[in-house]
Design a protein around this nucleic acid. Structure first.
Length: 588
RNA sequence: GCGGCCGUAGUCUAGUUUGGUUAGGACAUCAGCCUGCCACGCUGACGACCCGAGUUCAAAUCCCGGCGGCCGCACCA
């Protein structure tokens, strides 16, 4: 839709209009007035997005050897209760009864009643309502009275099965699908740390106000990587490869002083100065920077911004967002790097009762003295009577070291409502050989918003040359690799061009054939779709089996043999040949 | 969600103030002719008043509601 403001359109508007016109993507369900926050990709857009996905796969799955899974979008309620999302993925809102503006109830209290965020977090809806009353908090805009606080849940909620009251949620991230399958995945990783698991798929967030095209959607494509490592061996074996790569970091420390200035440091320095807490996290950030460069975003248009404590997700110990500079929206998040520690596995362990720990064998068995305890029934019996058996059972499950320390220290050990005295328990020490121990892996999580990357790729590919629009996509993400055209549609040229076209399809290229309109118009059309190369069949083709190849960006042309096309194009697409290597230059 | 502005073919728009003939143009698309390398030309075709109620003899135009867009506020773990 047009802006309605009559202003000169900015790049964001131009990209969205181009995208709609050429079928990259558009708002879904337009025939019913459109659905805000939902998009449909057309063939060019779907291919562009798949190509970007494949770039991520190439890095994480092929090069780093991670596992890839696909898990359901609809997820039983328990999962997101355990993950903490049900408690955290909602905001308490209050509405001013007078001016109808809405505010975060907790933020109002923090500002006008000086209650700390850690305290407001503990308050429920009733607590918030009471606190608002007690402190006489009023609408900060018009001074009107406030209504009752209500939760706005940003997850999509549904029920599972026809008669079931079982609650399910649309996943707001793909990560939990990985955590809940951890035990099987660990087996698939041959029970060795570290290992990574990746998932690309749709996620749902019921945003209050989705605007801004692909940048904020209610249903979007996310790529989550969960990388599991041993917290006792946090070193990253890939560090050497990227330690000299520079990163632009906007640190929380500076941000809290009101400065958005970035420090530019190498990966190595960032770790030495502990700007970044986990080695793996720093390495993923460096890899992401390089990846974005291959998508067409120059380094100076990228940065990493550290989230302030209250901006961080509930599971994150430290979090950076990778941002790219977009013309209208300014610095915009395209990926996130959270150090999730053992939070998620621990929570699923608590909620499901399933052991998520891994067994770590020591290099050498460790001989150590260990305490054991044995309930003494002859003394427990007379004191606890009928409950004696239960007490003994509880006692035998207690940690012997703790019981021993407590009994020796204070003369007793409090076991629930029972008081255990020294004579109730016999504590022994035995030498044992420990071969290993159980631990919960730590997790660093790189996560990418694919739709935002699509927008970014479009915006950075956009060029205007001699008044014509062209999308200068990098070779490996261009949605169409080669267009095949007859110079004119007569004298057998279309037939020959179709032959060349079919050959290229058979060779596995993404090719398109076009004979409508003049040759110039077809080149222009192809440029606007980002088609990388144009192969033109002309009268010389009929004489000597050669064709011209045209470069989208420079409009230069070379002439080459048809039979050499497949291998030349293949080299070109892999950046193993330049355009001039494709044949004899005939037009520059 | 709130406030302001706005919604006419695939795209950009004229028309709305002051209700009145068949809603006009350009680009794009398709067909035919033309066309020997960068949006050529000619002929033709397809194609629109966001949706729903209301006022009226008559609604793109006025009123109301909804949906959607842009900007600002709020929100975006």
């Amino acid at each position: 839709m047009r802006s309605g403001q009559g202003k000169k359109p900015d790049k964001f508007t131009i990209i969205n209009e181009l995208a709609r016109r050429r079928g990259f993507f558009w708002q879904s369900c337009e025939i019913y007035g459109g659905a805000s926050g939902f998009v449909t990709y057309g063939s060019l857009g779907a291919r562009l997005k798949q190509n970007i996905e494949d770039k991520l796969r190439e890095l994480f799955v092929n090069k780093l050897g991670m596992l890839e899974i696909e898990s359901p979008v609809i997820t039983p309620g328990k999962v997101f209760e355990a993950s903490g999302h049900v408690d955290h993925f909602r905001e308490p809102m209050v509405e001013c009864l007078k001016c109808k503006r809405r505010f975060r109830a907790d933020q109002l209290l923090e500002e006008s009643a000086k209650i700390s965020s850690s305290e407001t977090e503990k308050l429920g809806l009733k607590g918030l309502e009471k606190a608002i009353e007690e402190h006489g908090v009023r609408c900060p805009e018009c001074g009107g009275a406030l209504g009752k606080p209500k939760y706005f849940l940003t997850m999509f909620k549904t029920t599972i099965g026809p008669y079931s009251k079982v609650v399910g949620y649309g996943r707001p991230e793909a990560a939990q699908g990985i955590f809940v399958e951890f035990r099987r995945l660990y087996e698939l990783a041959r029970e060795r740390l570290p290992f990574g698991v990746l998932q690309i798929g749709h996620a749902l967030r019921n945003e209050i106000s989705p605007r801004q095209g692909l940048v904020r959607l209610r249903e979007f494509t996310i790529m989550d990587v969960e990388f599991f490592f041993d917290p006792e061996e946090p070193n990253c074996f890939l560090l050497k490869d990227v330690e000299d790569e520079t990163l632009k970091l906007v640190l929380a420390e500076n941000r809290s002083k009101g400065s958005e200035e970035a420090v530019e440091v190498t990966v190595k320095e960032a770790l030495e100065k502990s700007y970044i807490k986990a080695e793996w996290q720093a390495v993923f950030m460096a890899l992401a920077k390089k990846l974005l460069i291959t998508l067409g975003v120059p380094p100076e248009k990228q940065r990493f911004i550290e989230k302030l404590p209250w901006e961080r997700a509930h599971y994150a110990l430290q979090c950076f967002d990778q941002e790219v500079y977009l013309e209208r929206l300014g610095w915009t998040e395209v990926s996130g790097y959270a150090y999730r520690t053992d939070y998620d596995l621990k929570r699923h362990m608590q909620f499901s009762g399933v052991d998520m720990r891994i067994y770590k064998e020591y290099k050498k068995p460790v001989e150590m003295e260990k305490a054991f305890l044995k309930p003494v029934m002859s003394t427990l019996g007379p004191v606890f009577k009928a409950e004696a058996a239960k007490v003994a059972d509880l006692l035998s499950k207690a940690d012997p070291e703790v019981v021993e320390a407590s009994v020796k220290g204070s003369g007793c050990y409090i076991l629930g409502k029972y008081r255990i005295l020294p004579e109730h328990v016999k504590i022994m020490h035995r030498k044992v050989e420990e071969r290993g121990k159980h631990l919960i892996p730590h997790v660093v999580e790189p996560t990418f918003g694919l739709d935002r990357l699509v927008h970014t790729a479009l915006e950075y590919a956009y060029r205007v040359k001699e008044g014509r629009v062209l999308l200068s996509f990098p070779r490996d993400i261009a949605p169409v690799q080669v267009g095949v055209y007859p110079l004119v549609s007569k004298d057998g040229l279309p037939e020959k061009a179709l032959q060349v076209y079919r050959t290229l399809l058979d060779e596995g290229f993404v090719a398109e054939y076009d004979e409508a309109g003049s040759i110039g118009r077809r080149y222009a059309r192809a440029d606007e779709a980002g088609t990388l190369l144009g192969v033109t069949v002309d009268y010389e083709t009929l004489k000597n089996e050669t064709v011209t190849i045209r470069d989208r960006d420079s409009w230069k042309q070379v002439r080459t043999k048809i039979e050499d096309l497949p291998q030349l194009l293949r080299k070109y697409l892999m950046y193993k040949a330049d355009f001039e290597d494709l044949g004899k230059l005939i037009k520059s």
